[in-house]
Nucleic acid binder design. Structure first.
Length: 215
DNA sequence: TGCCAGGCCGGGT
DNA sequence: ACCCGGCATGGC
C-alpha cells in the first residue's frame, strides 16, 4: 500500500481506463491484447467514425468488415472474431446493457467472460474492473515484470496466484485496484521495460524488496 | 533495421 | 503440466 502511495505521488492519479463507456472499455480490452495502445486508439476511432462502436453495431457487422476497421490494432482477423464472440455473449446475457448485471455476482461474471473464446484472464479482469467496476485486481505483463524485478515475485507464479496476492494484501476497493494497476503500467512503460535502464526518479527504486510486502 | 507492445488459443510433448 | 507457433500493425 505504501508502494502505491509512492507511485501515486510520483505519477499522480492515472484516470484509467481510457474509454468513454463501459462498452468501449470492453472493446479496448480485446483490441489491446499484446498490442500497443496507440494502435488500439486508431482502431477504436475507426469504429466510432463508422458509427459501429455499439453492441448492435458490432453484432450486425460481418467479421471481414470489422477486421477492416480494426486493422491498425494488429491481429485484426483474430480480434474481429473475438470481438464478435464477446459482443454476442454480452447481448445474450444483458441485452447489451451492462447495468443489467447489477445483481450478478462478480465470480459468475468472471466465469462467463472466461468462457468466451478470445477472453483470457487479463482481458476478463480488465473488463470486470474497468468496465464494470468490480473489485478484481488486474495482473499483466507489467505487473509481473515490475514486481519480479524488485523481488516481490519469483516469476513462476500463476496469474490467479498473483491476483489473489494483491487482493488479499490491499484494502478491497475498486478505485484503488483501478489506479494501482494504472500506476504499475505507468512505471512499467517508463522505466521497467525489458533492456531499458531504470529511471533514477522511479519511486520503486527507493524500496528494498521485501520491506514492503505488507500493505 | 529489428524489436516491442496492457494476450490468447490450439496442438504437441 | 508445460512449451511453442501463430496471429499483424505501427512507432521508435
Amino acid at each position: 500500500m505504501a508502494l502505491y502511495r509512492a507511485l501515486r505521488t510520483h505519477f499522480g492519479h492515472r484516470h484509467w481506463w481510457p474509454g468513454e463507456t463501459p462498452f468501449e472499455v470492453m472493446v479496448g480490452a480485446v483490441l489491446t491484447q499484446n498490442t500497443n495502445w496507440g494502435n488500439v486508439e486508431k482502431a477504436i476511432l475507426n469504429l466510432k467514425s463508422a458509427g459501429k462502436l455499439s453492441p448492435r453495431g458490432i453484432d450486425a457487422m460481418p467479421e471481414t468488415e470489422i477486421a477492416a476497421l480494426i486493422r491498425p490494432s494488429g491481429y485484426f482477423n483474430v480480434k474481429a472474431r473475438r470481438l464478435k464472440s464477446l459482443v454476442r455473449r454480452f447481448i445474450e446475457k444483458c441485452g447489451g446493457d451492462e447495468r443489467n448485471f447489477r445483481r450478478v455476482p462478480t465470480r459468475k461474471l468472471r466465469e462467463e467472460l472466461l468462457d468466451v473464446n478470445g477472453v483470457g484472464r487479463e482481458t476478463a479482469d480488465s473488463i470486470l474492473l474497468y468496465a464494470l467496476g468490480r473489485r478484481i485486481f488486474v495482473v499483466d505483463a507489467y505487473t509481473r515484470r515490475v514486481f519480479c524485478r524488485h523481488g516481490f515475485l519469483r516469476g513462476g507464479e500463476d496469474y490467479d496466484e498473483i491476483r489473489v496476492m494483491f487482493e488479499s494484501l490491499l484494502p478491497r476497493s475498486a478505485p484503488l485496484y483501478n489506479d494501482y494497476h494504472a500506476q504499475i503500467v505507468a512505471v512499467g512503460k517508463g522505466y521497467c521495460a525489458p533492456r531499458r535502464p531504470r529511471c533514477a526518479g522511479c519511486p520503486l527504486g527507493r524500496f528494498k524488496p521485501r520491506a514492503e510486502k505488507t500493505k
